[in-house]
């Protein structure tokens, strides 16, 4: 299978020489297209840090993050923005959406950045809303949507740019169990039926149960990498 992204000896240290925290220590992983992977581990194990580095939101202290043989750590600020826009979709734990834009506008936003034509954007927005089961709610602003609905909009937005990889950082953490399961089912369907690649950072057993692959981190190192 084709690698979507690969890390080689990835390190991320915080603090100075005296008080150095090794958030990630020589982590090498490969994510292939179509995976539904969960990065798991206790708090402070480096899950979110790994997700941020893979998504180009942070720069590594050492090591490489490779996308089609290009090390994104070497990219300029503007090139990193373009990389995120075109290749990565993000779903965060909470407060994901731009509050002054409606659900439709939030989904539209990323396509506007990509320079997609207006008619195609409108079509895609409707399509994405339908995929996450939010037809008819496109005009609502985030404040008028439930937490679960907001996360579904976030998933729709993450997919709208047709990215290579969707990174989800604790997407169910602020949702009740039933809403969390519904959201995960949507993402699992998108993975199965549309070939979307998902990587989660999570403590949630529900996600672990559904993931095809579990990467277990402890103290910034991969201690287990198990495919089901």
């Amino acid at each position: 299978m084709e690698n979507v992204i690969e890390t080689r000896d990835l390190c991320r240290y915080f603090g100075d020489e005296d008080v150095r925290v090794k958030a990630l220590d020589h982590v090498s992983v490969e994510i292939t297209r179509g995976e539904f992977t969960a990065i798991i581990g206790p708090s402070g194990s480096g899950k979110t840090t790994l997700l941020h580095l893979v998504g180009g939101l942070d720069n590594p202290t050492a090591g490489q993050v490779l996308l089609s043989s290009t090390n994104i750590a070497d990219m300029s600020s503007a090139a990193l923005s373009d990389f995120r826009r075109d290749h990565i979709g993000f779903v965060f734990q909470a407060y994901n959406l731009i509050p002054v834009l409606s659900a439709s506008e939030n989904i539209d936003y990323i396509m506007l950045l990509q320079g997609v034509a207006a008619t195609e954007r409108q079509h895609r927005v409707k399509e994405m809303l339908a995929l996450v089961g939010l037809e008819g709610l496109g005009n609502r602003r985030p404040g008028h949507l439930s937490g679960g609905q907001q996360q579904r909009v976030a998933v729709a937005r993450a997919m709208a740019s047709n990215p290579d990889l969707i990174l989800a950082d604790e997407p169910t953490a602020n949702l009740d169990s039933a809403t969390g399961i519904a959201l995960l089912d949507i993402m699992r369907d998108l993975n199965r039926n549309h070939g979307m690649t998902f990587v989660f950072s999570t403590h949630d057993q529900k996600i672990m149960d559904r993931a095809q692959r579990l990467i277990h981190l402890e103290d910034g190192q991969v201690v287990r990498d198990k495919s089901k």
Binding site: S81, F83, R84, Y95, I98, S161
Partner: peptide, 16 residues
């Protein structure tokens, strides 16, 4: 600031 973080994560450039 959190919102700017989200916007930049989505690909909003510093120029934007």
């Amino acid at each position: 600031i959190h919102e700017f973080g989200i916007a930049k994560a989505m690909g909003t450039t510093p120029g934007n």
